[in-house]
Every structure is written in structure tokens, then in C-alpha cells.
Design a protein around this nucleic acid. Structure first.
Ligand code: ZN
Ligand code: ZN
Ligand code: ZN
Ligand code: ZN
Lengths: 173, 173
DNA sequence: GTTCATGTGTTACTACATAACAAATCTGGT
DNA sequence: ACCAGATTTGTTATGTAGTAACACATGAAC
């Protein structure tokens, strides 16, 4: 596995892997990030973050809510959305606007430029951090006198894994 | 007004201008685009397109519905969404995912690469068509074996007009 | 004018997100 | 330990966005 590419914050989960490591790694980084910024990673927030990291697919807020509701009696939409807002503010999760869904950030300490690749086949999401690309967007905007605050790039396509071994949908049962 | 920049498909409406010209021009182009592709620009679809072009701000589907409901008794969500779906398929309007809103496309015949500048002050939206930028995104994705189908870039910031004459919000009445 | 495709009306529903206020919990100072 | 203020969570209700399914109407093609 090529881990040398420093522009990939979150890679596609191609094939089998020890996803427990993904999760535990993410949780460890989350603890650090919160401690560093003096924010509190409460059990609820921690649990929501775990659920977002449940797979490499983007996760819907109401899916998190459904699972949370099985674990604790008291779980309503604000419960989840507040936790997600917090996690976003610390940079631990990102919201994919085109999907109304959330993904965990692989490198919360690194600057997030909001570049996402979304596979239309398997639904997985990768996150990039290509500073040159961000710079290019900035320049293009500035030629119009536009001062960029935040840039979001969401690219739909087909990931390598799905290109090499395409998913063939069988007939409905 | 600098109209020489061929990468700007839809500019910010800085200051006063004859917006009737914007609308009539857009409608004329819409007629052409539909005729060219053999699609039918029915009165309903035409009216929805006019409403989307009502201002240079992105327009919400339910706002269109509210106005439409005053004009014709029969107007429900599907009425608007179907018209918007059609207009999108012809390239006459674009959906801004981060706003859940729609804007008219200034150049429906040109290829749409989905590059938008969104002013957080005045809410106006400009559309760019920077092929080099699109190419850059494509290359960045392809290095990961990702085959791009559609790329959406939504940049938040402050437009020139709002930077030079910032809007100061007065106290609530 | 019959046929078939396309477009529209209508009802009902699902999904996504936030407002507002109450209760609980944590924090720092005494 | 105690209190006061801030933060977090519970709770109820509501607002906002989008779609499924089917009936009916309209248009073009033959
Ligand atoms: Zn994993
Ligand atoms: Zn895939
Ligand atoms: Zn105008
Ligand atoms: Zn502005």
C-alpha cells in the first residue's frame, strides 16, 4: 500500500484491511486534537465519532441517530447534530454537502481544504489535501476580486478498486 | 463592465443593472438550447426558469413553489422539482449543493464544469468555467486511479462589491 | 382518431436540520 | 465542600428539503 502520498488525508478502503486500526488511530488522534485545543471529547461525542468511522462510507446523521437510539434511550436529532457540529469544529469530521452525509477526517491536525473524491459505485469517499489545487482555485477567484474564505471540492467518479473489479448488480429477487 | 473574461459564465450583479436584460437574454438562450436538443420548454418550465432568474441570488425550490402557488392553484413540490430537474438536465440551471438552492446558468450551451463562487455577505453566486482548473482536479484525482465523472467546486468568500462597500447590518427594529 | 410517450396534478410520505427551553454536569474560585 | 457561571445534554416541537406512486391530461406520430 502506497502510504507515501502526503496529499491523501483519507484513502479509499480498497479491499480488506484491519479497520479496527483505522478507528483506534482516528480516536487517538481525536483525543490529541481535543486536548491540544482545550475542547472536551465527551463520551457522547466520542461515540458519535466512532459511529462516523464505522466504515469508509459517508454516514448519514439519522443513521448515527438510529444506532445511538439503541444504546441510550435518550437520543434525538439535536443529540447527533450537536455532536457532529462539535466534531466538525475540531476538524474531526467533514460534511459532504452533495451527500448530506459525514466522513471522519484522517488527519485532523493538517489543514483541511475540503477536497473529496466520491465513488459513485461503492460510495466510498477519499479526502485530498492538494495545496497547489487549492491555490489554483484561490487565484481563479481572486481574478474576479473574490476573497476566498472556504473552498469545497466534491468530485464524483469511480475509484480504482471499482474500476478494476466492477460491481455487477444482479437481478432483483 | 468587463465582459471579455470568457471563463465567467455568470457574474456577480455588482450594483444596479438592467436585470430585465439578464432575464430576457436567459430566456432567449433557453429557447435555443431546448430547440437544439429537442426538449420542450413548456409554459410551466419557462415560468420556473424565470423565477430562478428572478434575482442573482440562489433561489430555493420552496420559494419558487410559493410564488408559483399564487399564480396557479395547482402547485405542489413535485411541480417545482420536476421543472428544476428538467432545467438542470438541459443545463439551464445549476443546483448549489452547499445551499440547497438553484441558480440560472448564464451560458447553457457551454460545457458546465460546476465552479461556483458564493458571497457570504450578499449571497450572490457567480459561475466560472476554468478548464485549466477542472483539468487540475482531474489530474489530482487520476493520480489515485480515480476516474472523474463530475466535479463540483463551491467556493465561499466575499465578492468585490461587498469588499469595497461592505453591508453594515443595523439594529433590529 | 388511436396509440404511445411525455408532461402535469394530487396525495402522501421520507429525509434532513434547527429553535427553544429545561435539566444536568463540569469548572474554577472561595 | 460549596457556590456561581459556563458548557453540555435532554426534550419537545417545528421548519425545511425532496421523492414515491398513481391518476389524469396533453402532445406528436402514424
Ligand atoms: Zn478502515
Ligand atoms: Zn468505489
Ligand atoms: Zn441581472
Ligand atoms: Zn457580495
Amino acid at each position: 500500500m502506497n502510504t507515501a502520498d502526503h496529499t491523501v488525508l483519507r484513502r479509499f478502503a480498497n479491499g480488506v484491511h484491519d479497520h479496527g486500526r483505522c478507528v483506534s488511530g482516528a480516536m487517538a488522534k481525536a483525543e490529541l486534537a481535543c486536548a491540544a485545543s482545550g475542547r472536551r471529547l465527551t463520551p457522547l461525542r466520542r461515540r458519535v465519532l466512532e459511529l462516523v468511522w464505522g466504515s469508509h462510507l459517508p454516514v448519514k446523521a439519522y443513521d448515527v441517530l438510529a444506532i445511538l437510539g439503541q444504546e441510550r434511550a435518550q437520543a434525538a436529532p439535536p443529540t447527533v447534530y450537536r455532536a457532529l457540529d462539535f466534531l466538525q469544529s475540531v476538524g474531526l469530521v467533514h460534511r459532504i454537502a452533495s451527500l448530506n452525509a459525514f466522513v471522519g477526517c484522517g488527519e485532523p491536525q493538517r489543514g483541511h481544504v475540503g477536497q473529496f473524491l466520491i465513488c459513485t459505485q461503492c460510495g466510498a469517499v477519499a479526502e485530498l489535501a492538494d495545496p497547489a489545487l487549492a491555490q489554483r482555485v484561490r487565484r481563479s477567484a481572486e481574478r474576479l476580486g473574490f476573497a476566498v474564505q472556504r473552498e469545497t471540492i466534491e468530485v464524483e467518479g469511480v475509484c480504482r478498486s471499482c474500476r478494476t473489479s466492477p460491481v455487477v448488480l444482479g437481478p432483483s429477487p
